[in-house]
Design a protein around this nucleic acid. Structure first.
Lengths: 344, 344
DNA sequence: CTGAAAGCGCTTACAG
DNA sequence: CTGAAAGCGCTTACAG
């Protein structure tokens, strides 16, 4: 690999001039610039990143700390990854991906070894033990997710509490009074992303506001569990007429089970899902969803991160919630039909 | 951040001794070792990675080049990422993730800037323009996927050709003679991972061997497309009795459509899917699948990569195909029922 | 078993 | 507008 010294020699300038040509940190005569740039091109010169990092105390790398766990919705996570990586490259940064759950020690290693200039933490839990370290790291940190105590940390996420409210309000506005939540067992997410808690808090708040009672059945998103859950819902008296789905992968099995029971979403039951649009749109009865704008969350996260890196005013200690919106589809077409037949 | 100089001073040894204690590259008296290690612990010393890389010409970073594209099966891809990251960390390597499609120039940048010691390329296309550069990079490269011309490159992947054969053989063994492939439109994958081509090649080979004729309908994995495709299949004469699904996300919609038509998988139609087990198991009628052992592919990839990094014999220029196996489930329970009613 | 020192390839004050 | 040189924090031959 050619070095800047090689370039300098071939261009007949000093090594420091090559450096300045590349960084643009001082004015260079047009002639010199042209010669240097041409040699750089000819030799295929790339500056050594280790040497740059050592000399400048800047790695141009962002650490993405994303513990891979079971039951993660990888379609959403990968949208985040793609957005983060693209945002980083747009500022000439690269992404160091840390998926093993190395906890607080992992963060210390990343910063202590100067592997990166800043960190993005994903899959943030309510009581995440990475947070204490994150605060004292001295490097910019952005959380995607909102822990219970976000003091001194910048967090971005979807407004899951708002999402819960939107679901209840929509169903209530359609005239539904008997609303069911097909939920994720809180124990199965313990310690992990607390979006589940926030979503339910929003549902509870809206239910209280509208004077409704929400029935919750936890389940897994497989046919037998969904079947059992929906049976339970429909046998309640009065039966549930509006369903909210918390599992991002439940639209298919829920639609299947409802149709088996002769319950057509949008006619016999109203259904709103918390899931990617692609999943909702491909169903026999397309499903109304709460839309999560991954792009907007990513944009804000990267924006905050680069502002921190450039010291453009401290933007620490802030919880930035991205509003969600409802994408209405056929599964919420009609108001509840009273006096319809019971489930068989 | 403390440096090795700081550690040396506090431990009363020379800086080089600190380095040797950490690397274990020369014998150190127990007493010295103890003192140095204690100071390292106390100060929370971490070696500066840039300085290490500069001095040793070794970054301990592996570049993972994985262009994120539409229609990727992220559940499988993320399994790969997790396995690769874990394998790397087990050898004290980190992962630099490059998702933007920067093409050949991107590879040159990674190696030219000494951002990593080796590369893993995913989403390899038949005629991938990254390959020429990969060959001349001078750094170890492992492909996950098999291009048309793999000369001089080490490739690992599932044996998709074998997978195609397994599907046809299983259906043929069950007595099916009318077999349909619900396929991915080749145009929608053009230039991308050529697993699709290989899978079909396997199907064609087995069909020829068994003297069968395969009918193919391409589709997207949404309800209306699947519905149209299955209608076409069932209206053929004689009607198709065995289905092979190429889309990893089609088990839900296909099962839904079949059941709508009163066709129970395993009784009226046999179905084999090329998809993750989790998806197949959650269905009302669990689906027989071709199992893809991501772990095994990852293991071989990392194994080859570290052998290259350690110069343990050149293992370049090899195509390593991981056999697939059938996971039999209810969707292939029974032999074809002849003379059953036509589709309504 | 240990230390003094060269050198990796950059950035950036210092000097002109 | 440009150059000579110190220094970033390591690794590793050289020397004892």
């Amino acid at each position: 690999m050619p070095t800047s010294e090689d370039v300098a020699r071939a261009a007949g300038v000093s090594q420091s001039t090559v450096s300045y040509v590349m960084s643009g940190k001082r004015s260079i005569s047009p002639e010199t610039r042209r010669r240097v740039e041409q040699v750089i091109e000819e030799l295929g010169y790339h500056p050594n990143s280790g040497a740059q990092a050592l000399a400048s105390s800047k790695t141009n790398v962002i650490g993405l700390v994303l513990p891979f766990r079971a039951n993660m919705d990888m379609s959403v996570i990968s949208e985040f990854m793609a957005g983060i990586a693209a945002g980083a490259r747009a500022h000439d940064y690269d992404i160091l991906l840390v998926t093993a759950d190395e906890g607080p020690a992992g963060l210390r290693r990343l910063v202590g070894r100067a592997l990166c200039d800043a960190l993005i933490l994903m899959e943030v839990g309510s009581q995440d033990d990475r947070l204490a370290v994150a605060r004292s790291l001295g490097a910019p940190v952005v959380l995607i997710g909102v822990p219970d105590d976000s003091d001194g940390l910048y967090c971005v996420d979807f407004d899951f509490e708002g999402a819960g409210q939107v679901c209840v309000d929509e169903l209530a506005d359609l005239g539904h009074t008997e609303i069911g939540l097909l939920g994720i067992d809180p124990d199965s997410t313990k310690g992990r992303a607390n979006f589940s808690v926030r979503f339910r808090r929003g549902i509870a708040a809206a239910a209280a506001r509208r004077g409704l009672n929400i029935r919750t059945v936890n389940m897994e998103a497989n046919h037998s569990d969904v079947s059992r859950a929906i049976n339970t819902m429909m046998k309640m008296s009065p039966p549930v007429t509006g369903l909210i789905l918390q599992h991002s992968d439940s639209p298919d099995p829920v639609t299947a089970v409802l149709l088996e029971h002769g319950l057509v979403p949008g006619s016999d039951v109203a259904v709103i899902g918390l899931c990617p649009d692609a999943l909702a749109e491909r169903l026999r009865v397309p499903m109304t969803t709460v839309q999560q704008q991954v792009t907007e969350v990513t944009r804000r996260a990267m924006d905050a991160l680069f502002r921190m890196l450039n010291k453009d005013g401290a933007i620490t200690g802030q919880v930035d919630l991205v509003p969600v919106s409802l994408a209405r589809r056929a599964s919420t077409n009609r108001p509840p039909s009273h006096g319809r037949r019971a489930i068989h």
